[in-house]
């Protein structure tokens, strides 16, 4: 084995992830090659350095920093409301992310829930939401209104049009 081949095997060699044959070949190479030995020593040293890297503590969740951050959502979603909280309202149904097992009924919500708008079915079944159809209907309505006005204020006075009475018929 040459250095180039051993280079990619040094990391799994260090982690004991090589087959017995590969391991033996790398060991043989390391006995002869100072460069690869130095790399292996470095890898051990860097592993130790990384493992000893001091751990930083996350900043505590202060109320001033909560506004607008995802932390506020986390607090809202995970914090059960105290009994004495005046704005607390008991959920009648579990939250959307909570399963409907009876154990979950102690969940309370601190923040006001948006009321679900109940739209009558006769509105939802009529295709108002079809934009093209809605536009066509609007146009038809405007044309009807326009013709009615044209008839009442122009055609009828000009040609003395009127609805015949029953005696004339």
């Amino acid at each position: 084995m040459n250095c180039e081949q051993v280079k990619d095997l040094l990391s799994p060699y260090l982690d004991d992830q090589l087959t017995a044959h590969e391991r033996q070949s790398v060991t043989n190479h390391l006995q002869l090659c100072e460069i690869c030995n130095a790399v292996l020593v470095d890898y051990r040293r860097f592993d130790a350095l990384l493992a000893r890297l001091p751990r930083l503590s996350p900043h505590p969740l202060s109320p001033g920093k909560l506004v607008g951050s995802s932390a506020s959502l986390l607090v809202y979603e995970t914090q059960p409301v105290q009994e004495e909280t005046p704005t607390a309202r008991v959920r009648s149904t579990p939250a959307y992310h909570v399963s409907s097992t009876s154990k979950r009924n102690y969940y309370r919500c601190r923040y006001p829930q948006p009321q679900k708008k109940t739209v009558p079915t006769w509105i939802t079944t009529i295709p108002w939401k079809n934009k093209r159809l809605f536009n066509s209907l609007t146009l038809l309505g405007l044309l009807t209104l326009g013709f009615s006005l044209f008839y009442i204020y122009y055609l009828r006075p000009k040609y003395h049009l009127r609805i015949p009475s029953s005696k004339e018929i």
């Binding site: 969740l61 995802s70 932390a71 959502l73 986390l74 995970t78």
Partner: peptide, 17 residues
């Protein structure tokens, strides 16, 4: 660090959901 704070909260929020 500040972004890590926010992303950590994001991670737990996603996990909670």
């Amino acid at each position: 660090r500040e972004q890590a704070d926010d992303l950590t909260q994001d991670t737990f929020l996603k996990a909670f959901r």
